[in-house]
């Protein structure tokens, strides 16, 4: 089982992508998608060095929901600031100390920061201890770093590194 299906989740995701690409959900396409998913995940197995393990699937779903709603809020906030006066913006760089260690968790955190509240992650320090974050408009830099740690880093840490 392990030998024939090294990454069941990736196989399923590839099958879903195939169905979406074909845009038809007939049994033939489902079968073809599953065959492709299993074959590609098997041939590509040697490229995925770190197999991510999701420890708290429900928390992951909740995290995705929080991020999606935050994306909408962040977009409205950024749109308002673009339409407002550019002179009144207070852009800052913040260093956020990281408690995460795995590659996947850090890159997920960096992507989440880019998508959500008026911030872009700019640079990961070489020792992976800090993430440099640029905020479009922030009154209090330390407060922003604390929000990022509480709202995004803590759930990611529980999901991937318990």
């Amino acid at each position: 089982m392990r030998r024939w299906l090294p990454h069941p989740l990736i196989a399923l995701a590839l099958a879903a992508v195939w169905l979406l690409l074909a845009n038809r959900f007939s049994p033939g396409h489902i079968l073809l998608g599953l065959v492709l998913g299993v074959a590609i995940s098997r041939f590509g197995a040697r490229f995925w060095l770190e197999i991510p393990r999701v420890h708290r699937p429900l928390l992951l779903l909740r995290f995705i929901g929080v991020v999606l709603s935050d994306i909408v809020v962040a977009n409205l906030a950024v749109a308002r600031r673009i339409l407002g006066s550019p002179e009144r913006l207070r852009p800052v760089f913040v260093r956020v100390p990281l408690a995460l260690t795995s590659d996947l968790a850090i890159s997920l955190l960096a992507n989440t920061i880019c998508l959500t509240p008026g911030t872009v992650s700019s640079r990961l320090s070489p020792d992976r201890a800090h993430l440099l974050v640029h905020a479009l408009d922030a009154a209090d830099a330390t407060e922003l770093a604390a929000t990022i740690k509480r709202r995004y880093e803590a759930p990611l840490r529980e999901i991937f590194e318990p």
Binding site: V72, L89, P91, H134
Partner: peptide
């Protein structure tokens, strides 16, 4: 609005916010 941000804002790092956020939504 995303493209407007590209023109209106005043340094590269703030301009980056317009296209990446407003445009994805």
């Amino acid at each position: 609005i995303g493209s407007l941000g590209l023109v209106r804002l005043r340094d590269f790092y703030t301009r980056l916010h317009g296209p990446t956020k407003a445009t994805t939504l």
